[in-house]
Amino acid sequence: MGSSALILLLIVGIAFSVGGILISKWFAKSSASKVKGEPYECGIPTTGTSWIQFNVGYYLFALIFLIFDVELVFMYPWAVAVKKIGMVGLVEIVIFMFILFMGLLYAWKKGALKWM
């Protein structure tokens, strides 16, 4: 079908999800009340705001991920061609991987892989 398939899928996805929600709006009875709109916290009113900054410790993981994911993208073209390149490709990727692996080991050693 070619690239028009993307548009098709996009439209189908949006139409389906928005349509479904709208249809249920048509069918479902709705009523508004103060208690109903409260955020659910096991039936107890929440203390303070729910939108606060707090440290979940995934910040470091996001950083390490960024490095590795970029490397991963570099590997795709190599992977396609490696069979044709042969030994040179292998040596190159071993060096590449070694550096990456050292990076991981460094992060591990530094304790960056510990959830805070």
């Binding site: 916290e41 096991c42 107890i44 303070g48």
Partner: peptide
């Protein structure tokens, strides 16, 4: 509770508190 503290209520209606522990 102080300003900026993250306080969360677990229970009384929660799947892992056996019974109505809050």
């Amino acid at each position: 509770t102080e300003e900026g503290e993250f306080v969360i209520n677990i229970g009384p209606q929660h799947p892992s508190t056996h019974g109505v522990l809050h």
